[in-house]
Design a protein around this nucleic acid. Sequence first.
DNA 1: TTGTAGGCGTTATCAG
DNA 2: CTGATAACGCCTACAA
Lengths: 334, 334
Amino acid sequence: MRQGPTITTIAARAGVSIASVSRVLNGLPTSDDTVRRVKVAADELGYVPNSVARSLKSSRTNQVAFAMADIGNPTYVAMVRAMQPVLKAAGFRLILHSTDADIDDELDVLRRLGERYADGLIISPLRVTERHLNAFAEARAPVVVIGSVPEGTPVDNVRADSRTGLRLALDHLYALGRRRIGFVNGPLDTVPGAARARAYADALAALGLPHDPALIEIGDFYREDGAAATRRLLARTRPDALMCANDLIALGALDVLRAEGLTVPDDVAVVGTDDTELAPVAWPMLTSVALGSAERGRRAAELMLDRLADGSAGPRVVTVEPRLVVRGSTEGPR
Amino acid sequence: MRQGPTITTIAARAGVSIASVSRVLNGLPTSDDTVRRVKVAADELGYVPNSVARSLKSSRTNQVAFAMADIGNPTYVAMVRAMQPVLKAAGFRLILHSTDADIDDELDVLRRLGERYADGLIISPLRVTERHLNAFAEARAPVVVIGSVPEGTPVDNVRADSRTGLRLALDHLYALGRRRIGFVNGPLDTVPGAARARAYADALAALGLPHDPALIEIGDFYREDGAAATRRLLARTRPDALMCANDLIALGALDVLRAEGLTVPDDVAVVGTDDTELAPVAWPMLTSVALGSAERGRRAAELMLDRLADGSAGPRVVTVEPRLVVRGSTEGPR
DNA sequence: TTGTAGGCGTTATCAG
DNA sequence: CTGATAACGCCTACAA
């Protein structure tokens, strides 16, 4: 763990100037003899270039940061997992920020971009406030947002298509003969909560089903909240299907339905959202709307790399196609 | 996204030298007037210090890297999640490396520590080879290894205690009257695979149960492999309990048992290992040996911070206490 | 082809 | 208390 050699060390050892060392190391035209001596010296000393010095000179860190609410959430895990190989292949390291969806924390991450510790930031805020929009505009490095932002926001944007996603799910339930399709959503002031509320209403309308407020319940995005919300919903009405705003909520719904002695999917079909790794673990396995977390992560990383290669293009919007993954919680037992 | 101001910009604006600016920014004794002028200028310009330049000067990056096989694995997710707040509180950023358990990749990460992009590396290799040990010795920055390393390896080390963990599990099964306790393990040339094989044998011996090779089967650490291994095992013998080397394997076992028409836990009790977030999602909920992934992550981060604060101490070994989390897959159907 | 020198943005030392 | 100035390690004109 001794101190590493620098080009100065190598220059001394090889009997050449630091400029020559730098040239050899960067493959610039140099005499064969010099090349040989430098390579030998560098090899013997186990030279590894100092990336900090390089960054200071080049004002490039080869690091990209990703900020999300909670790395424990399977959706973000899927994103990270998909970003990683893209960034790595391009020679970038990935820095992870967990913000607990705390707005000040998120703004702090954006402000700190000014420290230039990363070349760009991919961020997936649960809520997008006015302050976020300001911070996006003021950001000192390229920002890619996962989750919809208003038209005209000066960032690249990767969005899910909840609208089509819920439409797929409700069509599927309708085709199975379900007509009283409940909806257990997350908070309406979050990006996904708001989007999914609209999407549910639209899908009902498209099917010509009535929009019955008794069939809608709201909790937070976790299993316990989903369970509690489902309990409240069941206390006042009896759906034949439950659309859930994410997989954790759906797990909570399964818990409650089982506790109430209702059979899934015979009595009540259940659909989750996000198609996380949890969906095929549940029993019955959970039918879920895949909003393409992995692909959103991948696309975000690609947008970032594009942007870093050529900063001039206008803000781009990429929408990822949803897919319905049908499993036992809607298709019948087993 | 304009270029950020530097202390030079501020100095000019405040009409003082860059030295004074630096002093004010670092809270060193300065006249009130200078302080005021510098702060105003810095504020107006939205100054944010450049961390790269700071790093070059201080040879500290305030970054810690974590290398693991696959961020999709819930065990690593738990570690990352636990490291994050510890590092963040100490002002460190977290860099993530996913190596796919590729040895060359892991060695590369170790070698690149010489680039000084991070102050230290936490690594959790699935296999620890001779080359790893060499690389640990040669590393240009502090290394903390999660997973056992041989005595005398010059790194801090956080280990799980599979031995006690499996002992807890087998005692539990024994107490429930199970006597034919099968074992579905992962590859024996991995750190956890080897440890768990020994631990299983020891636990059997302690209970005075015979070590029957027919009850042991090996696959990889994934659900499909666990299912296949369980199928092979059931084809030749009939256990009344299955100990599984991780939760994914246990899920595969549940799949196969269900398919065979066997009831869990009545016919066969099932125990997983790692107590991941998947355990309480399965049905029946999975009893699992918690080897403290989160705590191992937390402790590793703490060891790293200690080490960075004071490099002189000898290599330390921390062992995390296991815990058996009992759920429906052993205790009876709810 | 090679070496000298300046600069990336900070911090820290040293005179004044 | 303050300002010049020299590092940190690297890259790159520019000059030889």
